[in-house]
């Protein structure tokens, strides 16, 4: 995905610079043809490919990633001005974590987004998901980290003066470490 965007960026900017700097570049192609090639032939396959990729990923998270509904790990994410609290209903003895979300890598996680005051939005760009946390309502969102690691998350619905600082971190752990980390038995920093 990164390399694809790099290639497209280079192509478009290269054409632009060539048109500006190289004398008579592109004159051989008519205006209409430039519009059709650059405005339809180039972007349509790219956007179609990305759309179907997104469809496939969505279907994978909803169905393909799990054979049984209980293989999905539910985590409650509660937004309030201006922090996120994460609790693990299915992991007994786990405390509430503030601004730090632990997930197991390689397992589909269902975030139940809720709010105590105003509308917030749960968003972890690298894990693809984004969903509004609306007071009095539970919205569900599936995310999945393939690799252990740290991923940045942020509130993406303006919710007051502290909105910009309403960040959290997602730590994806190896399956065997996950339970210990969540219950607090595992030192981490």
């Amino acid at each position: 995905m990164l390399w694809g965007s790099f290639a497209l960026f280079t192509l478009v900017l290269g054409l632009f610079l060539a048109a500006v700097l190289v004398p008579r570049f592109g004159r051989g192609v008519s205006q209409t043809r430039w519009i059709i090639l650059g405005g339809l032939v180039l972007p349509l396959p790219v956007l179609t490919g990305l759309t179907f990729y997104a469809f496939a990923e969505g279907e994978f998270l909803l169905k393909g990633a799990v054979s049984e509904a209980d293989e999905v790990l539910e985590i409650r994410a509660t937004g309030r001005m201006w922090q996120w609290q994460f609790s693990y209903p299915s992991v007994s003895g786990s405390p509430v974590h503030t601004d730090l979300l632990h997930i197991p890598a390689g397992r589909t996680v269902e975030i139940i987004a809720e709010s105590e005051d105003v509308i917030h939005s749960f968003w972890v760009p690298r894990l693809g998901g984004k969903i509004d946390a609306v007071p009095g309502h539970s919205n569900r969102l599936r995310i999945r980290a393939d690799q252990p690691g740290r991923y940045g998350g942020i509130c993406s619905e303006y919710c007051g003066t502290g909105h910009a600082g309403m960040q959290f971190e997602v730590q994806a752990h190896r399956q065997e470490d996950f339970r210990e980390v969540v219950t607090g038995g595992f030192r981490h920093d």
Binding site: T48, T51, F55, G58, E59, L62, K63, A69, V72, E110, R140, R142
Partner: peptide, 15 residues
Amino acid sequence: AFCFAGVFWLTLCPL
């Protein structure tokens, strides 16, 4: 046609 075709075949709701 492109955007709404999903109603024919995409999963509509979470499990």
